[in-house]
């Protein structure tokens, strides 16, 4: 049994598709790529997949993971997949693994939030503390655009996939509760492996 572990970016328009949409999207990619994947039994056969934990709608993923079960390993996978991937998915790297254990080995993610708005640092820190968070990195810079001043904020937070940690959407709510914001980018920049 062999699995292709695919490291890919999910970006741009595809930040807005749901996890179920993403699964359908990959199903069609591997069918188009014609790379000899294994299918499930039954009247609606599906490729055998396993995904890293779902991204919330609106989030990009800089390094997402996907295991595809193959009939046999082949070396041209990356090119074959990228050639037929829609705009918004790009494979950076593929390697082969004997076991598909994404469910257990991925324990968390590093999330980045970028927005425009006059965010009060003290209130933000207070909100994050109330969520029970300890590890974050916050920075802001002044932007001038056609004579209008904006404060561009960037926050990176480590969130583990275990009890006691909020979903990234909760962090979004905290930021919005402080004042009006214009979202620029939401992303998971790294998956943390055990």
């Amino acid at each position: 049994m062999v699995f292709a572990r695919v490291e890919y970016r999910k970006f741009g328009p595809l930040a807005f598709i749901s996890h179920l949409d993403l699964i359908r999207c990959w199903e069609r990619i591997v069918r188009r790529a014609d790379i000899g994947v294994s299918f499930t039994e039954g009247f609606h056969p599906r490729p055998k997949f396993s995904f890293s934990p779902p991204l919330p709608v609106g989030f990009e993923g800089e390094r997402e993971l996907l295991d595809i079960r193959l009939e046999k390993p082949r070396l041209d996978l990356k090119d074959r997949i990228n050639r037929v991937a829609p705009y918004g998915i790009y494979v950076n790297n593929i390697f082969f693994v004997q076991n598909s254990d994404l469910g257990e080995s991925i324990i968390g993610g590093l999330y980045n939030f970028q927005w425009l708005g006059d965010t009060d640092r003290t209130k933000l820190e207070e909100g994050l503390k109330n969520l029970g968070l300890k590890d974050w990195l916050y920075s802001s810079e002044q932007l001038t655009q056609v004579g209008i001043f904006h404060l561009k904020n960037s926050l990176s937070v480590l969130l583990l996939f275990e009890k006691g940690y909020p979903s990234p959407k909760k962090v979004v709510e905290i930021i919005e509760s402080i004042g009006e914001v214009i979202w620029l980018k939401l992303s998971r920049i790294q998956l943390l492996e055990r």
Partner: peptide
């Protein structure tokens, strides 16, 4: 997702 376009 209904407004993103960029279909394959």
């Amino acid at each position: 997702a209904s407004y993103i376009g960029d279909e394959y």
